[in-house]
Design a protein around this nucleic acid. Structure first.
Lengths: 165, 165
DNA sequence: TCTCCATGTTAGAGTACTCTAACATGTTTG
DNA sequence: CAAACATGTTAGAGTACTCTAACATGGAGA
């Protein structure tokens, strides 16, 4: 049995980055140009060109010579998913672990390419769990966690009943 | 001003992987051979050879032709740190998010190369926070989280006092 | 000792990017 | 309309890995 050839190889991290950038640009302007991608990612236009050729072959974008870059349906779905993963990670790192904004974004940019769908799903649920806290606010344990991260020890309200061997 | 040249370039993910593998092997046997690394990482010996040359130039390992691979002090410290990062991630993914063992290990193997020291530190504190729970057991909120992840809803004891607009 | 075999090394090709530099195209403007 | 400028493309080199295949080394047994 030959493995199903409709199953496409996973995109490389770099190509995912290009795709995500195209998605971001697409969301905030009418047209996306090679030049825009180049500027946002801080790579040369020739590198973008190379990437666009790869993404075109995968049918994730369409691009006519000297023209705009346009996401295909598949490309849009995929890039949107990558962007969601990114945002999720930023929220987790920033909102729960209290990592500073810049570091959270930088880490998310790298982590978004390597986490499995299972981990992604669990992180999403974790954040949902925090967001849907019955009190409608930050749950008490999370306040304690923040305190612990900042001070290195538990708040007084969270230290009683210690029973360790 | 020329940037301080004692500052060494960051190791690539691949080289970190090689170094971590050497550390793991070093921990459980007297000597480390090219062949062992090759087997554990599932790459060809020639690739290991190439990696060892790079790590030797960086003074992270010592290796005489046809001999053993030995970690230098610096190599030991660095590889130990990488391994710790790995273990931390496995504990977080497995122990808190409830990701299955195999996926947790796979994800950790990729994530360990991309998280910043800040995120690493926060994750460590998060786990510490859970481990030092005053009751000496899994904190109640974590039980609720596990329930939420499994069932998609909060346990009864965790749903009262909802006040959302 | 000598031969065999496990192990290690080298050479050379392939992949997936990066860049610079030269050149092509298309748009704007004088 | 044509020159000037912005933008895009191509060619070719460089990096950091991967592999296969051929060859070298060294230790253990006949």
């Amino acid at each position: 049995m030959i493995p199903n050839e409709t199953k496409k190889k996973k995109l490389s991290s770099n190509m995912e980055d290009y795709l995500e950038t195209i998605y971001i640009l697409d969301q905030k302007r009418e047209t996306v140009r090679i030049k825009d991608i180049s500027a946002l990612m801080d790579v040369k236009k020739s590198s973008v060109n190379n990437a666009i050729n790869v993404l075109s072959e995968r049918e994730l974008v369409r691009h006519e010579k000297y023209g705009y870059v346009v996401l295909t349906l598949e490309g849009r779905q995929l890039s949107k998913a990558i962007k969601k993963r990114h945002d999720l990670l930023v929220r987790f790192l920033g909102g729960i672990l209290g990592v500073d904004e810049q570091t959270a974004v930088e880490d998310a940019c790298r982590m978004e390419h390597v986490i499995s769908s299972v981990t992604n799903d669990r992180l999403r649920k974790f954040i949902e769990f925090v967001d849907t806290c019955p009190t409608g606010e930050k749950p008490e344990w999370l306040n304690s966690l923040t305190y612990y991260i900042e001070k290195g020890k538990r708040p007084k309200t969270c230290t009683k009943k210690i029973k360790r061997k």
